[in-house]
């Protein structure tokens, strides 16, 4: 493959990652949230694989395989299992309306590009454009975290933030040392499991997953 095709593929996949995070913000149902997250993770895994092919850095292939295995299969499967088990009401109930949310996301994408301008200018790696997208995805993840009420959406938001950071890590550094990557994956997996268990316990105790009911601890 010529390098032009590869560059197109890299940019295209990064664009899919950004678009899916905006779709996540627009999702009204829990299940479509998990599905969209799966697509985003698949795009991230493929992104890693293309970067690995382009740079010849073998250890990024392992990152790609781990991303797809954990974030496309294991974690979404576990989240869907939890959602099924607690018979949660499937609607998301955003605190900020969806049209407004989308506008804010567009603004956040601009912020990502604006902030990363000086960093992109100084570098030469072909993936550096993706750094702006990774910042935008992290910001959108943070917005998703604060604007949705269900405990499960908070879990997805953290996973989206982590996807954004992985995109950034691959695009500006071609991936971190392998031992670190594996450790990070392990932590993400365990964190998702623990959060799932707590979502279950919260639902059992409060009879809802709505975190706005958790207001007992205050000064």
């Amino acid at each position: 493959m010529s390098s032009e095709v590869l560059t197109d593929a890299i940019n295209g996949l990064a664009a899919i990652i950004l678009l899916t995070s905006i779709v996540l913000v627009a999702s009204k149902r829990m299940r479509s949230l998990v599905r969209t997250f799966m697509i985003q993770s698949l795009a991230l895994g493929m992104f890693a694989a293309v970067v690995a092919y382009y740079t010849g850095a073998d250890h990024i292939y392992i990152v790609a395989v781990l991303t797809i295995a954990l974030k496309v299969f294991v974690i979404p499967y576990f989240l869907e299992y939890t959602i099924d088990k607690i018979h949660v009401k499937k609607e998301i109930e955003p605190l900020v309306g969806i049209p407004m949310s989308l506008l804010i996301c567009a603004g956040l994408a601009f912020v990502g590009y604006y902030v990363s301008e000086p960093i992109i200018a100084s570098g030469d790696a072909i993936t550096k454009n993706c750094f702006a997208i990774s910042l935008a995805v992290v910001l959108i993840g943070l917005f998703l975290m604060i604007s949705r009420r269900k405990a499960m959406t908070e879990v997805i938001a953290i996973l989206v933030i982590e996807n954004g950071i992985f995109l950034g890590a691959i695009s500006i550094t071609y991936g971190m040392p392998l031992i670190v990557e594996i450790g990070v994956f392990f932590d993400v997996l365990v964190a998702a499991l623990i959060m799932g268990i707590f979502a279950y316990k919260i639902n059992r105790t409060f009879e809802t997953l709505d975190t706005t009911f958790m207001r007992r601890l205050r000064d």
Partner: peptide, 21 residues
């Protein structure tokens, strides 16, 4: 496993995970 301790644990893991990210 009381309501207040679950609330504290949830805040703890969510806020610290975001911070750590």
């Amino acid at each position: 496993e009381k309501d207040t301790s679950l609330e504290a644990a949830w805040k703890y893991i969510i806020i610290c995970s975001v911070g750590i990210a």
